[in-house]
Design a protein around this nucleic acid. Structure first.
Lengths: 262, 262
DNA sequence: CGTTGACTTGACCGTCTTCAAGTTTAGTGG
DNA sequence: CCACTAAACTTGAAGACGGTCAAGTCAACG
């Protein structure tokens, strides 16, 4: 496993990790119409709540299980995943993290992280101070509600993932995962319409997400390819036949709902 | 599967489901020292927030996937579980629900339930109106924070469950589940010190929680019994050798933290 | 005393894991 | 640009783990 630490860079002066490049009101993410429109005062508060940006290299450990971070992050760009490991070294990927989602809420409301987070790509994170979260709850009930909303959404994603891992055979499990990831990627513009998830994954990571061995994952990917449903290209998946995948995976689309971006 | 609807009874007059038997300040659950002490005003608000009590029979469906409930519940007594089903009928139990925990938060913050909830025993639920949740967020930031805390805790439990299902072989998986359940049961006084979980479970339910077949669950239970770790008695487990189980399941105890009771 | 749901057990078979040995690809230094 | 290396990916073989099928037993209950 990668154990490289968090790498800090920044755009121009090479000095501060908290260079604030995007004011929240002109946040490039916020423009997407899947996010609910914030009021002026909400936007002002988020702007003040945000203490800077953190640039993270691909394959870095952002948070480690057992640590108690002073920060809470929102992903501005880039991808990551949450995972836990057993003492025998086997790893379970719990979920993937997309732009607009929070990292470190667990440590912020409880006192310690119970999972680790690792980046898949270079990332830009908006940094919030943990202790100011309480201030948010006091001053902006609407934002407090949004945070609960995000926590509840994460729970829903986990429910679906658990059902997938617990009850579907390997090929269907893969099909479902890719649809699941693809929907989320599309929503925030990571995937374009061409079926290509622009998401650098290794087969080992897919295996760890699905509770499968690497070898069996590889062979099941081949079966999906033989059926012309997906193609694996080094560090990535391409969806060839969405309808076919959906049929295989017992998939039902859900209407996308407006979501908060904090 | 059981499809009996929610059964409504009540103590004395057989008429109203909202007979309020316990005022919050003398709530028998709240006395337990695992719950954080509420201030007078918090208690007053919860008291007003609570519109009544709902009595539910064992094996009832409390909430159904796809439904949008007008209510949010806190379990006052009794046990339940959350689950999802696939179109082929197979079921995955996502988590168990113990006294002091919320039911229906997903429907309350999002608009629909994405899982179902079924009671294991007769239960008493405190009923809250969903639309007043927003009022809670506006007037009582501390309680709002508590709700986020509870959502985050549920996420943590799911993480652990997913790791268990995804990465442990059957015997260890059972061992871990029973320890997990036992810890939570003890915390709220469902289990006494004798190793007996007073929790009516069927082997099919255990299988559905762990992503195993009924037959294999049965045979794995026997292996645990042969090793004198647990005993299965009709609709229940007894832990015979906690230390042995912990060793088998790669278990580490965590300090119990004060939690909110809303 | 018959029925029903829970539990048990054996036999067989398929999925998935492990082991072992590859090949291919991307990155690095000469 | 090429050789070398490490990481990612691929494939086959053998066997374990877990699923399915089938046929029970057992206890509770009307």
């Amino acid at each position: 496993m990668k154990t490289s630490g968090v790498q800090v860079k920044n755009g121009t002066n090479g000095k501060s990790r908290s260079a604030r490049q995007y004011p929240c009101e002109s946040c490039p993410l916020r423009d997407k119409d899947i996010f609910r429109k914030f009021s002026g005062s909400e936007l002002d508060f988020v702007q003040v709540f945000k203490t800077g940006e953190l640039l993270v290299e691909a394959q870095s450990t952002i948070l480690r299980e057992g640590a108690s971070s002073a920060h809470l992050y929102t992903v501005l760009s880039g991808l990551a995943f949450r995972y836990k490991t057993l003492t025998d070294g086997s790893r379970q990927i719990l979920n993937f993290v997309f732009p607009g989602e929070l990292i470190g809420l667990q440590a912020a409301v409880q006192s310690e992280m119970q999972h680790s987070v690792e980046s898949l790509t270079d990332m830009v994170l908006c940094v919030f101070q943990r202790e100011r979260l309480w201030e948010l709850y006091q001053k902006f009930p609407s934002l407090a509600f949004d945070i609960t909303w995000l926590a509840s959404r994460e729970e829903r994603l986990l429910d679906e993932h658990l059902l997938n891992v617990g009850r579907r055979p390997a090929v269907e499990r893969l099909a479902f995962l890719f649809l699941h990831i693809h929907r989320r990627a599309e929503a925030v513009g990571v995937a374009n319409g061409d079926g290509n998830l622009n998401m650098p994954l290794t087969q080992q990571q897919v295996a760890d997400a699905l509770g499968l061995s690497l070898v069996h994952t590889n062979k099941s990917l081949r079966k999906l390819y033989d059926r012309k449903l997906i193609a694996w290209q080094t560090r990535g998946v391409q969806i060839l036949d969405r309808k076919g995948l959906e049929e295989l995976a017992d998939w039902e689309e859900e209407e996308s709902r407006l979501r908060p971006l904090i």
